[in-house]
Write a protein that binds this DNA or RNA. Sequence first.
DNA 1: TAAACATATGAACAAATATTCATATGAAAG
DNA 2: CTTTCATATGAATATTTGTTCATATGTTTA
Lengths: 117, 117
Amino acid sequence: MDFEIAEQNIVDFEKIEKIKKVLPQDDLIFEIAELFKVFGDSTRMKIISSLLEDELCVGDIAVLTNSTPSAISHQLRVLKQAKLVKYRKEGKIVYYSLDDEHVREIYEKGREHIEEV
Amino acid sequence: MDFEIAEQNIVDFEKIEKIKKVLPQDDLIFEIAELFKVFGDSTRMKIISSLLEDELCVGDIAVLTNSTPSAISHQLRVLKQAKLVKYRKEGKIVYYSLDDEHVREIYEKGREHIEEV
DNA sequence: TAAACATATGAACAAATATTCATATGAAAG
DNA sequence: CTTTCATATGAATATTTGTTCATATGTTTA
C-alpha cells in the first residue's frame, strides 16, 4: 500500500494523510453509492415521485410510469431491498409506500440542485 | 394515452388521475435520476467524500481512491458536468472542490439512511 | 528547445443493469 | 374446482457505463 503511494505524484502528502484518516471505510462508501444507485434510474425515480403522494398498488404504478407491471415489480424489489419502500397486502393487491422520511429528503435535495442550477 | 390507461387493470382511477396532475414532468424526473446516478458509483462517492474535507488535485485524489489519474480525470468530468465540483488551475496542477452545498446535504442524507437501518 | 510532468481525452473492452417475455404463484370469483 | 386476475420471478437480450491503454495538451524545468 505505502509503496504505491510513494511511487505516485503526490502534491501534498500531509493533506492526503490527514484526509485518509477521516475518510469513511470503503464498505460504508460502497453502501452509500449503492443507495444512490437506486435513486439513479428514471423509472424508479418516477415510482418514488408517485409514492411521495400516496400509497399505490403495482398496477397503478405501472400506469403512472407508462411501464409494465412486470418491470415495475422488478423495480419495486430493488426499492424494497434498499429499504426505501414497504408494502401491505390486501387480498391479491399489494400496496406499496415509502418506508423512510430520508427518501423524501433525498429526493427534495436532488430536485433543489436541479432546479437551482 | 388514455387508451392505454383504459386497457390496464386500474385499482383506483381517481387516485391515479390526481397523482398524475401533481407528478413532475418526465424531463425533470429524468434530470433528478441523472443527478443521483452521479452519486451512485463508489469511485465518485469516494471522490466526493474526499472533497468534503478539502480541495484536492487529480493526483492526490487518485492516491486517496486507489485509482489511476486517468480514471479519476474521467470521473471528475462526470462530476463537473453535473455541476457537483468546480476547479481552479495553478500551473499544471488542477485543484478540484465541491461546487454546491447540496452535495454535502445529499451525501449526509444518504449516509444517515445507511447508518440508521 | 527538449524533457519531465499533471491532466485530459478517445477508443476499446468488460461488467453491470433495465426491460422484455414466458411462466409461476397465490387469491378472489364464477 | 376452474378460471381470472394481480403480482412475482427467471432467463435472455440490449444498453449503459467504468476502467484501461495509448496518446494528446499544456505547463514547468533543465
